[in-house]
Design a protein around this nucleic acid. Structure first.
Lengths: 250, 250
DNA sequence: GCACTACTGCGTAAGGTATACACAGTTCTA
DNA sequence: TAGAACTGTGTATACCTTACGCAGTAGTGC
């Protein structure tokens, strides 16, 4: 990602500044035939249909009917395009909490909304992360999350820590279930049975002597009947929010 | 990742079965000049010095003094090599909890040890994840984690959920601090100041009207003085374990 | 000892990737 | 109207993974 020193001094790449609405376009040369958002949209729909692996500069350009290199007039490197794709995938966050809403219900809604965004765009999870959030929608999501914690007695640092804790959890959980779904697709099972096939694998490979705890877990057979697909998420979120609540009450 | 149907029927790729010690080697042809572990070691030390991006099949082969294609006699695809690299990076987990140890202290130690493993091998965080853990050391780490929860009243499903919750948190936290360190390296700040430079960026870009909560957080200035590098980890782990403890006590 | 078989390592090549650079054409500004 | 600035594009480079076929080697069965 090329960070060039430009007038605005944000240290952001030019394309990201453009996404923020800074950086008015120069009026000199020929009118651009493309827009940053048209490029990003094309890349996003490509990722949605064929996966992130299908997103190459040439493929995106071909879908837009332009040459590969013309994309580089809008984006300095592929990294930047990926960053913008991520921003587009998240979109505008849902409205913040109602004025007198309990912080916990607001925060819970926020977490579920974030999870839904990942589920809508699972390819986002395959984008290699590079830096703290700096794109408009990412920061907007952050804003909404922080707003939920507004009326707690947490310090600002703690609020941000709590936010990172929950958003990290959501991302992780989404990644896990996406991996599970992908593995299921590879082995041909349907998604519900992929936990089961993992359990079957572990049973074949773990010896009870060396892996007593794993063996015990497998013995109960709870792994084979995974229950609803939301269970893992519900469990983890409840634990984290319980832990936060203990802190807020203190 | 090519999954071929072989005798053992684990559904695992041949190289991973070899890592488990299944699959005795055939004695027919010429003696192999390489070993799986020599290949993995070379790849790991390459990643350690030059980053995961430097790990290409040709580069690894060159470091071993063999041709690129000979690696494919030991590994069916690069994915498999990456999986084995990850397994090697984690290594054998520390011993499990003492017999009468409190679950919480044992679990805490486990989380810190996992974090240390990530910090020793930050390139692991750049490996795209693909499936639930199925390599020897990964499962061994899982075993040790589950062992900590042995004497709690949690169901086996809940134990696994708790394990995934904590291990996901650790991974996420490690990824975050690695990203921060990488960003700092890009901008030339030292690592301690990278939070500060992120705050500076946000200040430039967020307008108080649209982003009141973010602005408030920035105003306090707590972001600029990040405290110790462990703070975020300590905070998150404490919250999660508090949440788990509430469940265990109930 | 000899054929057979299975295996190893390697050279070549195909098809993909990102992107540096030069160049022609276009549009606004002085 | 000249010049500057900007756009799109073609070409070229330097990578990448990996499919395939071939030559050589080490055991096995006769």
């Amino acid at each position: 990602m090329a960070i060039e020193e430009n007038g605005s001094g944000t240290g952001l790449p030019a394309s990201i500044e453009a996404a923020w609405g800074l950086r008015e376009r120069r009026t000199k040369g020929p009118k651009p035939g493309l827009t940053l958002s048209r490029i990003v949209d094309a890349a996003v729909s490509l990722a949605a249909t064929d996966g992130l692996g299908a997103v190459s500069m040439s493929r995106v350009a071909a879908d837009l009917g332009v040459s590969t290199m013309s994309l580089y007039r809008y984006v300095a490197a592929k990294d930047e395009l990926l960053l913008l794709m991520e921003d587009a995938a998240f979109g505008t966050p849902p409205p913040g909490p109602a004025p007198d809403e309990d912080w916990r219900t607001g925060f819970t809604d926020w977490a579920w909304a974030l999870r839904a965004a990942y589920h809508r765009n699972p390819w986002v999870l395959r984008i290699p992360t590079s830096a703290p959030p700096s794109t408009p929608n990412s920061v907007a999501w952050m804003e909404r999350g922080l707003a939920c914690l507004r009326d707690t007695n947490l310090g600002e640092g703690a609020k941000i820590s709590a936010l990172m804790l929950v958003s990290g959890f959501v991302r992780n959980e989404a990644r896990l279930s996406a991996d599970l779904a992908a593995a299921a697709l590879r082995t041909g099972d349907d998604t519900g049975q992929s936990m089961e096939s993992w359990a079957r694998l572990l049973r074949k490979v773990t010896d009870p002597e060396r892996f007593p705890a794993v063996t015990a877990a497998l013995a109960v057979g709870e792994l084979d009947t995974p229950g609803g697909p939301d269970d893992e998420f519900v469990f983890g979120l409840a634990r984290i929010l319980d832990g936060l609540e203990a802190l807020v009450r203190a």
